[in-house]
Design a protein around this nucleic acid. Structure first.
Lengths: 204, 204
DNA sequence: ATTAAATTCGACGCAGTGTAGACTTTCCGG
DNA sequence: CCGGAAAGTCTACACTGCGTCGAATTTAAT
């Protein structure tokens, strides 16, 4: 590993490189849609961004690093959006709002989110990023469950463990639905919301 | 594609090739544990099975084909086991039995099942196999839900859609837990069983 | 205008895949 | 028990894609 990788912390002023870097990530995202991770070559990305392979390696150390950066960019977005969502104390409203937001997130970033999930195993960096994101959701779900009267704690039938299972249910259900259509996503959302409400004891 | 691939339908009598074929799949499974799919090379598999790369390509057309065959073998096992499990009409018992069986399956075949899930996207053959397997589970869950009194139908809040979501919850929860330990798997099972029971309206 | 940093390029080496064709072993009917 | 076909095996090769190197060129600041 040479002294390359000045990919981080460039000037505050907008240099040509910042533009290129964004072009690379955008191209990567587009190619991911068209061909998928495996079929997408570093040459493809470089070409799409209007530079050569050699130049791309000035910005990123590897194909994995490119995708990791793309995931990081997207995940950043998720966190922002999540923070921005109005919080409410009323569990039913909180659940509805959370599901609504989740639909929007998957609508906009479904592809990158699916990619992140797929690569979590093989690219530790991405696994880290995604599991951290999941933790945020799990924590949020836990709070809602407890507020709705589910016993707090980490035992299998208490709020924390249930929140984890519900999170995975939502992740996987949306993962599949987002491959289909927006309509499927909406239906999936209804179903998940329903199970969440039941699990919280808010409907019988 | 040449006239290779006599991998299927060999003699009824046990030929040397059948033995080799099994050795290849066994080695593949072992290597999958040690290094994971990407790091595992065709050379590694061949070496482990005591043959050269060239010889391996006599049995399987590609690395993906090897793994697909391994998944197929494992999935076959799952189906057998599922058929063999005693059926009961009492929902509570049915759920408990199903979860118990699921724990056993993930204990024994967790690695291959995780691999199948990971490769579902990139290897259509495997995706097919796994989605068929999931359908079996979804159908089974649907039956239990309906028997427990959940309204039948495919709308978002009816049995079929709920069964799908519950199936994904179980898949993903076990996927993660099986990477940890048998204990985690047991806890995960309790949690999933609990949510399933609540969703079926069998406990409040 | 000069100098250092930023950026780009083309060429190279390496690893891994899949293919080709020759060679050996095993199977079986006469 | 022998001869040819089928089954199995090997070495060598072509191709693709990744990551690296060093030289050339552009850009920015002094």
């Amino acid at each position: 590993m040479p002294s390359h990788h000045p990919a981080r912390s460039r000037r505050a002023t907008e240099r040509k490189g910042d533009l290129r870097e964004r072009a690379i990530l955008d191209t990567c995202e587009a190619l991911l849609t068209q061909k998928g991770y495996d079929a997408m070559t570093v040459g493809d990305i470089a070409q799409g961004a209007g530079i050569t392979r050699g130049a791309l390696y000035f910005y990123f150390g590897s194909k994995q690093e490119v995708v990791t950066a793309l995931v990081a960019r997207t995940v950043e977005h998720l966190w922002e959006r999540s923070r921005a969502t109005a919080q409410t104390d009323e569990p039913r409203q909180a659940i509805a709002a959370a599901m609504q937001r989740t639909v929007e997130l998957w609508d906009e970033h479904g592809l990158v989110m699916r990619t992140a999930i797929d690569l979590s195993l093989t690219v530790p960096e991405i696994g880290e990023l995604w599991s951290h994101t999941a933790d945020l959701f799990i924590t949020a779900i836990t709070v809602v469950l407890e507020r709705a009267g589910v016993e707090a704690g980490t035992e299998p039938e208490q709020a924390s463990a249930m929140a984890r299972a519900l999170c995975w249910m939502i992740e996987r259900t949306f993962y599949h639905a987002s491959q289909e259509s927006h309509e499927e996503l909406q239906k999936a959302s209804s179903t998940c919301e329903h199970i969440w409400l039941i699990s919280a004891g808010l409907i019988t």
